[in-house]
Design a protein around this nucleic acid. Sequence first.
RNA 1: GCGCCCAUGGCUCAGCUGGAUAGAGCGCCGGACUACGAAUCCGGAUGUCGGAGGUUCGAAUCCUCCUGGGCGCGCCA
Length: 560
Amino acid sequence: MMAASVKKRLVALLGSSLKNCLEKGKFELAAPPPSIEVEMTKDTSHGDYASNIAMVLASQARKPPRQIAELLGEQIEDRDHLLDEVEIAGPGFLNFFIKEHIWTTLLQDVDSLQEQFGTNNIGQGKRVQVEFVSANPTGPLHIGHARGAVIGDVMANILTASGYNVHREYYINDAGNQMNNLGTSVLLRYLELLGKTVEFPDNIYQGDYIRDIAEQIMEKYGDTYVNRDDDEAVRFFTDYAASMILDEIKNDLKAFGIVFDEYFSERELYKDDGVARLLEDLKARGFIYREEDTLWFRTTDFGDEKDRVVVRKNGEPTYFAADIAYHKNKFDRGFDTVIDVWGADHHGYMPRVYGGIQALGFNKDSLKIVLVQLVNLLRDGKPLAMSTRSGEFVTMKEVIDEVGRDAARYNFLMRRSDSHLDFDLELAKKQSNENPVYYVQYAHARICSMIRLAVDRNFSIPRYDETDFSRLTLPEEVMLIKVITRYPEVIEGAALSLEPHRLTFYLNELAGIFHSYYNKHKVVSDDLALSKARLFLVNSIRMVLNNALNLLGVSTPEKM
RNA sequence: GCGCCCAUGGCUCAGCUGGAUAGAGCGCCGGACUACGAAUCCGGAUGUCGGAGGUUCGAAUCCUCCUGGGCGCGCCA
């Protein structure tokens, strides 16, 4: 059974205190009470937690904030004896000083939950789809895709750990002009290989992988297609190439530790005239109009800067038309929340997609679009030029092969996703203090090493009930305990804000406090009870490091 | 030109959804292994939070304008 967090218990205490005040007529409110916020303090001289509720209430209660704080403080009924002291400070903060032994009681969760420690149930089983990567199968994944891939993957992990029922999906854009370009590119290369003189237009894909696929087709089918440049031939080359490339994409993702529940093909949407029927539906709802042989969606109704074409003059639906159908499909599958992870270069596309789902009657809030800024790939501080079409790019696979999966993943998680990221290959490769992933992994390995030593000396990791926590009196130990017990809140916050980077920052903090503690104090000593208590503590740290790194998809080495 | 995002120590970035004296890492200088792993630790300097107004008990955070950067503005995806 998970213990309620101290924060939640304080919120509850304040809630009933407020109720008492109102019932006893200590003050009156002109409006319904706002939700009560309790925050961890930055400075321990302000206690462990603080609430600003008195200041928030001041204007509607028409009393000075400090007076409100006094009244609230008096009416707190601390039946569980959580508190040493409630202090009124500054302009009207209520500062809570928690009894020290309360913290150690929270460590019971680490012992009883083990690998599950840190999980929560804010999701309550709600179904969430996370759609990410979704690169066209026109070439291998490159470094920019890698960042979105990791962020989407870890976000999905965090949501799973928060009680959501998560579905990971990759949308394959395999139905547009770019695909025809791909087919044509391979066809032309194929013809060239067979000795034909061919001209390559500018918009053709030129990477080596195009040539590889052309060679493969040549080996398999000889010159079967040499005199055919008709639509059917192009379609064959397109399908063949797309399938090869998609397989490679799947392999690369797998090597990066990323596995999808579903690869959803854009072509699915066209089956049974799905897109056409959707457009009819929208037309019936009055959002579609015709102008000069094209069909327009009135996205300006939803704040877009101009209306968008859904069916071109040549009669073909646009990518956008399919995308509305796709989002409808998502909601029809019963997801409560749909999350799209996009490259930030698509941000201008957001209003029309939000418009699309609203036109269909879905709630705007049920779609969350997370933008991931593009990555600048550097080597020794110098930028590497990249362009998919010209074939000059560093693939995701090359990056993983060069710097390693752990370092690559961790590097992508060290910044908030909407912030630009410089990814320096040489820096990411360094096994040094410039590379935070090793800092955290080293803490884990160090603890494992310590435990090995302790076991050699016939210690065992004590259970919670066998541990004498009164021996953990050092300030560093109290600090460590507090940071450990904060871990579940970090996950909850990361899940609510869809911000995976919070975990890496937390891990760096935890590892830092541990390393410092380690250098200052000996865990395994002649003092049996003390050693056991400290072993329990460091093993709890190990557990948190293990659980958090698992969520990040980063390994937890026992030796380095 | 219009729209979106960003601007925080020398550099790279956090800042928990408006809280108290704005924090890390790197870099720089000086120290710590006959002690559970030195990929570690300890000590030392650095800020008009791009600028100007506004909102309120309180602003790096919210609103307006300006400056400087990134991206977008296809019947491409």
